[in-house]
């Protein structure tokens, strides 16, 4: 049912895929679009995922991911030349569909207990309106996590991306207390999901994970390298997350492409907790002109996820 209603939406991802496929390689600059058909846009259902074909029928596709090139640890310290990445998250469109989280987990071979991307239910004060708040790593321009690292296991590259080298990390967890946004996660044991990844380790892939080390959202530089947007961006059915090169002044969510400066100006974009002086590279568009009321984020959740939001001011008041 959900799939059907999505189909009818303008700018829906399905429509886009149809276009994309018909256009074929016409999307010279958007090499990621064709592959989006196979590896992302996934609703997990066992080992298979559902995608829509060009003919409009729903097919199940093996959930295996395409092999991405993995660069060496030394190479991963250099940023992509002449780039500076930025993310814009439109809070007005998020309905906690959690596709971003699922795609990210799958792409990075993460266990359920480790989420690089979390979706919060926030309410700034009693009389303000609650909203869903997807939170990746902010890849700050003044990253405290990098400052406090005693061994240089986490570093900021020339393209603005903050990465972790799990082979260097000693697991002191100082960066986790240094980050004011609770972005980083720790591998408290060896999760079997780590073994799914047979490729050699690269900090750009943040995979395979290593026990006793810290990891976090990495802006998927391995995908960027092949001209694709991060997993969360292409997975979002609502097009909430925009990604791009800020020096090029462009961000895209896969379907729509905007001038970054215009988007931030027209939609009053801001950075979360600006007062902390961390200078994040993730911008938020305020939750105005909602496409969905907040409670639309609840019905499709599993009990486990639902109970995460039990103790929020919104849930205490509304009992969804």
């Amino acid at each position: 049912m959900e799939e059907q209603s999505n189909l009818n939406k303008k700018n829906s991802r399905r429509q886009f895929l149809k276009k994309g496929l018909l256009a074929g390689a016409g999307i010279a600059a958007g090499g990621g679009l064709v592959s989006a058909y196979v590896d992302t846009n996934a609703t997990e259902s066992g080992k298979k995922v559902k995608v829509l074909t060009t003919g409009g029928e729903i097919m199940e596709v093996d959930r295996g991911l395409l092999k991405l090139p993995r660069v060496s640890r030394e190479e991963s310290h250099k940023g992509l030349p002449g780039r500076k990445f930025v993310m814009v998250i439109d809070l007005g469109k998020c309905k906690n569909a959690r596709k971003c989280v699922e795609a990210c987990q799958k792409g990075h071979h993460l266990p359920k207990s480790q989420e690089f991307l979390k979706v919060y239910l926030l309410q700034d004060s009693e009389k303000t309106s609650p909203y869903w708040f997807p939170k990746p790593c902010f890849h700050c321009d003044n990253p405290l996590c990098v400052s406090v690292c005693p061994v240089g296991a986490t570093y900021k590259r020339s393209d603005g991306i903050v990465l972790i080298d799990n082979e260097r990390c000693i697991g002191c967890k100082f960066c986790m207390t240094g980050c004011p946004y609770s972005t980083r996660v720790f591998a408290w044991k060896h999760y079997h999901e780590f073994d799914e990844d047979k490729e050699p380790y690269s900090p750009e892939a943040s995979s395979p994970g290593k026990e006793g080390t810290v990891s976090k959202c990495d802006f998927c530089p391995d995908l960027i390298r092949v001209g694709k947007v991060p997993y969360c961006v292409s997975a979002c059915p609502m097009g909430v997350i925009y990604f791009g090169d800020v020096d090029e002044d462009t961000v895209t969510n896969g379907t729509e492409t905007y001038q970054f400066s215009q988007l931030i100006r027209d939609r009053a974009g801001y950075r979360y907790l600006e007062t902390l002086g961390t200078r994040p590279c993730v911008y938020y568009l305020p939750p105005v002109d909602r496409q969905f009321p907040v409670d639309r984020g609840f019905p499709d959740l599993t009990e486990e996820v639902k109970s995460r939001y039990k103790d929020t001011p919104y849930s205490r008041k509304n009992k969804p």
Partner: peptide
């Protein structure tokens, strides 16, 4: 005891 990777302690 708090450090995740004691095998890499000498990195310090």
């Amino acid at each position: 005891l708090c450090i995740g990777r004691l095998d890499k302690l000498y990195y310090l």
